[in-house]
Write a protein that binds this DNA or RNA. Structure first.
Lengths: 337, 337
DNA sequence: TGGTCGGCTGGAAGCGCTCCCAGTTTCTGC
DNA sequence: GCAGAAACTGGGAGCGCTTCCAGCCGACCA
């Protein structure tokens, strides 16, 4: 009902006409290409301003065969997995570098098989110029898909069974070793671990780091329970551990989430932390600061992970061949050891 | 070095040729349009399979003038704001309905002015068919942009100063009232509040709910400090409150994040929770379960918020005129009251 | 003064798909 | 067995932009 006409966006032709030049010339000035005289260049700019012209991204994409967007794909079998704050922070990291470019960010939660099919579609239809692929586990079909995708792919984390050409990962193994060594140095001798999903690279690497450290210290490294990276999994794993080895005096837990569950079990069992048993977690989520007691844990640079993935993808897209990157992890000492 | 040719994707023309039909016919069967004989239809399908044809989304977008994607835009002045797990869950909700469609999800963290410009661009270039816009605060320029965007816009939460035609929001005011009433029922009489940012709709609504409840109860409702929705803000606000009104016996805190900060201050000040002072938070983040004591708080259906935003946008895009939606909030009783 | 060179310039051919339209075929009902 | 309707069919014109290319023109050198 307003007087506003539902005016279409002006096209390049209209700009050209108004500026009194050919469409080619107009296109050149829009794209800062050479071979256009100063006078025409300015005429075109003026016309652009007057008309409020904005190039149509779709048409441009069709003509240049470049989508102008990249996708961040989170693969996994649990639809709600993305709710993990971990990913949110990765996204912020990714965004921080994409912001400097003209690229748009698409998000693909390839969680159902339908989701995976769509991601595949997305790539085959060339709606995106590159992919960042996270959290492949086990025999994720996406791994192969990625391998022979026609666009650059960088992995976030390394899948099991397969070393991708381009990836950025956190030093999970090193971090786990650090954590476990910390326990050893604190004088603990009967040290267990609660693992994450062992069909994920991170889960396995943390277990290995744990075993590395105990092997070096000459301690038993077979007290292992799986908690699947979930809080309740951590709780039940802790229960089993207490059954199996009532004399344990420390446990390295492969995620803070699980540590929270374990802490609850420990409290209920009347074990004092860190008096009776020391705990160290992994990830350094914000909650880790507010557990009782505050959790000693391993921090991984999540923001940097996202940032570096994006940088690597950009490099790849511009024809470089970047090397894989492993980001350092760091022990954060609080009060649970 | 493999024998794989870097084969381009086949085009519709190739499909048509192989099937021995016209491009128009091929297009019709791809799009399940009528007016194509059974025989040709099958020939085309076969050709599609043989060739592994996938329609080029960009070309289709250009021809149909539909991008095939929607954007979820998070506006705000803090680049890291998105790291709030709140948004992650919204994304999951949004995704759950988009997954059923052919629409792709683009994410726009319109945090810097550059980010905002890009979002504006995104819309003007029609790279997206619709927008979900979240977390406008104060005089966010995006509000007006959204208002006269040429694509449907649904708001997540209501901005201040402006009631958008289409939005889904949580019942912040009602939730805050619930929380405060709970405090009153528990026999508390000297009740304060720590507010969130008052230039955001949610922050203001929660303050109003607080005041509503106390007005009804005939209690003083002027014990107010601002915590800006941040943890440290909650801490300093609590400190000020303790100064101002050492006799307070309860505080409604507009976010769990801030409540965590406040709890720390309270503990340090030697006040027992809930013995000396009762606390209720807002949001029901996962950490709320692990504070000391576990936090009584108001749960808002974040996943549903995302889901309903997406549904509303879909409705809008298909020409309907959905009504705004206010999702119920719910008191979650734990041990801090 | 003639010849060259190199930077302008605009025409035109796509990019891959949709969809209108006019022409052809095949069915109906009588 | 025939008119008229209904269903198919393929040609062609776009969607808005990029980019190749051939033609120009003025400048510059000998």
């Amino acid at each position: 009902m307003t007087t506003e006409t539902p005016r279409r966006q002006p096209t390049l032709d209209e700009v050209a006409e108004r500026a009194g030049v050919s469409r080619s010339a107009a296109s050149r000035v829009i794209n800062n290409a050479p071979h256009v005289s100063r006078a025409k260049r300015e005429a075109v700019r003026r016309a652009v301003d007057d008309l409020g012209y904005v190039p149509n991204a779709t048409a441009r994409a069709l003509a240049t065969q470049q989508a102008g967007s990249v996708v961040l794909a989170i693969s996994g079998d649990d639809p709600a997995m993305f709710a993990d704050p971990f990913f949110a922070e990765v996204v912020v990291g990714v965004n921080s570098v994409l912001e400097e470019t003209e690229l748009e960010l698409m998000l693909s939660l390839a969680t159902s098989s339908r989701g995976q099919a769509r991601l595949e579609q997305l790539l085959r239809t060339r709606q995106a110029d590159g992919v960042m692929l996270m959290s492949l586990h086990g025999d994720d079909p996406l791994a192969t898909l990625a391998a022979n995708a026609s666009v650059p792919v960088v992995f976030g984390g390394r899948p099991l069974n397969f070393e991708p050409p381009y990836y950025v990962d956190a030093d999970n193994r090193g971090g786990a070793r650090l954590a476990t060594e910390h326990l050893v140095k604190a004088g603990r001798r009967r040290i267990a671990t609660i693992t994450g999903r062992l069909d994920e690279g991170a889960g396995m690497a943390r277990l290995q780091g744990f075993q590395d450290a105990l092997a070096v210290a000459g301690l038993d490294n077979t007290l292992i329970e799986n908690g699947e990276f979930r809080e309740d999994g951590g709780a039940t794993a802790m229960t089993r551990l207490l059954d199996e080895a009532p004399d344990l005096d420390a446990v390295f837990i492969a995620s803070d989430q699980m540590a929270i569950g374990a802490l609850r079990v420990l409290a209920r069992a009347g074990r004092d932390v860190p008096g009776d048993v020391s705990i160290v977690g992994f990830n350094d989520i914000t909650s880790a600061r507010h557990t009782d007691p505050p959790l000693t844990t391993v921090n991984q640079p999540i923001h940097a992970l996202g940032r570096e993935m994006a940088r690597m993808l950009l490099a790849l897209m511009s024809g470089d061949q970047p090397s894989p990157l492993i980001l350092p992890t760091q022990l954060v000492i609080r009060s649970s050891v």
